[in-house]
Design a protein around this nucleic acid. Structure first.
Lengths: 147, 147
DNA sequence: TTTCAGGTTTACGTTTACGTAAAGGTAATT
DNA sequence: AATTACCTTTACGTAAACGTAAACCTGAAA
């Protein structure tokens, strides 16, 4: 077997690796986000295709729509645009940065709140232990409705 | 007349403040995320309602579904759960932390990539200026991004 | 040769998060 | 009284991102 340097992937290879369905990958292609080559009818994915898929999924984690991710790909080769398009691209970049900064802040605040929620949960658990200290399956004495 | 300490908001007050439509706010209520009081048929929102709305919107910015945000609200009063529920809540918290950590990383990487894309755009613009050399409305020639 | 694990297209179904009328109530102006 | 500005409910519509089912090809293994 020739150790062909060009690594390739089947659709289910990528589906397994990224824990998505082939349907999802085909859908991304349908939306113009991927363009794998074909051997006959079968899709063959290059490492480059794999990277693009990775970028799409990262975009999704950050709440990007597929269209936004597609637009972001264009930012990787700004040779193709005229002056006005380049200005638009710069504005787009600035806008994304603003959003990401907001998200960064949101995450920090929410992390703190998760800490607090966790503390309250642990405290509630401790109070359970207190109540249950003696041998009987004593009921908890708080006024909240039980299930 | 009486300077009633309890501040209230109409639905359009909140809609304006957060730049969403009244329809959106009613939808959140329909989904059990808000429960404003009523004066007759009209919804009256308390500062607490306003905070909840804020939390919903922050959740949305981070990609939470409404159901997830609703579940997060329950984390604020862990008095109501039994032991098993508290364990579940702790697991939920841990899961959210994992996701937020991933997002944090995603954001950092994407910020860097945005920097690079911006640099490429600026470079492409400079090459335009070169081509357009003489009569152009003087461009700034420095290569650094400005603030 | 049949079976079978993968791949394909086509196409309709589903969930989430609202948008968009339609039809009407209420309170303050004009 | 009539207009205006909000508010309400009811209900059907919609876009995004796939899920799911049907019907088919296809190469390798049993």
């Amino acid at each position: 077997m020739s150790s062909d340097k060009s690594q390739t992937y089947s659709i289910s290879d990528l589906a397994r690796e990224f824990d998505i369905t082939p349907r999802t990958i085909r859908f991304y292609e349908e939306q113009g986000l991927l363009a794998p080559t074909r051997r006959g009818q079968v899709r063959i994915y290059s490492p480059g295709d794999r990277v693009r898929l990775k970028l799409i999924l990262r975009g999704k984690r950050l709440g990007f729509t597929l269209e936004e991710s597609r637009a972001l790909f264009d930012l990787y080769d700004p040779g193709s645009g005229n002056r006005r398009q380049l200005k638009t691209m710069l504005a787009t970049i600035a806008s994304h940065r603003t959003n990401l900064t907001q998200q960064l802040h949101d995450i920090q605040v929410m992390m703190i709140e998760l800490d607090e929620s966790e503390a309250r949960c642990n405290q509630a658990l401790e109070e359970f232990s207190d109540t249950t200290s003696s041998t009987a399956p004593i009921n908890n004495k708080n006024t909240m409705t039980e299930e």
